[in-house]
Amino acid sequence: MKGKYYIQGSAAISPQESFFGSFTPQMPVVEGPLNRLRAKEPDYSGFITPNNLRRMSRVLKMGLVAALKCLQNSDIAIPDAIVTGTGRGSLQDTERFLHNIRDYAETALNPTPFIQSTYNSVNGLIALQQKCTRYNNTFVHRGFSFEHALLDGMMQLAEGRADVALVGAFDEMTDEHFYIKSRLGMWKTALTQPADLFTSGTTGTLSGEGAAFFTIGTTPGIARLDGIRMVYKPSRQELHAALESFLAQHRVAVTDIDLLISGQNGDTRYDQFYQQLTRQFFPQTAVQYFKPLCGEYETAGAFALWMAVQTLQAQGLQHVLVYNHFFGEQHTFFLLSAV
């Protein structure tokens, strides 16, 4: 996609101390008994009135407040577009609603969890809070959810429909959903600390959650978003060819990349994608691994992009590449450059 896109501001709520001040990566501790990293939530009362707060579930609060903080950081009140991605939506509300159906034999169902279980609840709340009646869209495409939201935001800019788009992602984990996904072999069975993720030599990974938002526009901001490339279920050759053509498209050589932010998550079934790519293209390049910091979830790529923005700025880097995939299926590259 032609045109220049800049990140004007960002905000994140994650298992890191990411909401306030400057970001210093810290290895979190899994407290057990589940292999699960929980987001460190800020005090929401400064952003949402008590009357509204009482009704919101955890992910709605995380998503809404990350979005509001991002707008605040960008000095923007009303964006021209609100576009988000989520893999799971509000699980807490969905589960409450389903439990009500079971417990009350499909009668006397509470409206609140039903309304809020829809995937676009966060978008609606942002729009209501900011009185924004413009473009509003939510993408739910598993490991490509945030990526499609970002692409849509960029297309809004490219087509001149928006000057500034608010783009973000949010996902939460619940005990029940953790259990369901554990049946699919997504998580490690033995309690594993993030620091030991790559040496465990087992399948599965750590579950994570969080919300990250960005304002993107066409005027220079804090970082330039050169592009995004998505590849679905590629072979190793297809993946490597996609990377080569992606970098060539942006006239960036592999040796120009100062930092690779890698989504390696310690799952022995799929880590080979990261390892082979790093070995072949970036043997001398600095690599940071973000999954030990935030855990695995459908929109972890949004945290990676947020981390890339922070690191690019803090370390004065020229080019940062993010490579992530979701359980071997949805693969994504983001390329960021200094302004």
């Binding site: 009357n51 009668t107 006397a108 409206p111 309304i115």
Partner: peptide, 17 residues
Amino acid sequence: LGLDSIDSLELMVLLER
């Protein structure tokens, strides 16, 4: 209490339940 229309639906559910 400053309740709104969604709360009124919740109160209907309360009466039913």
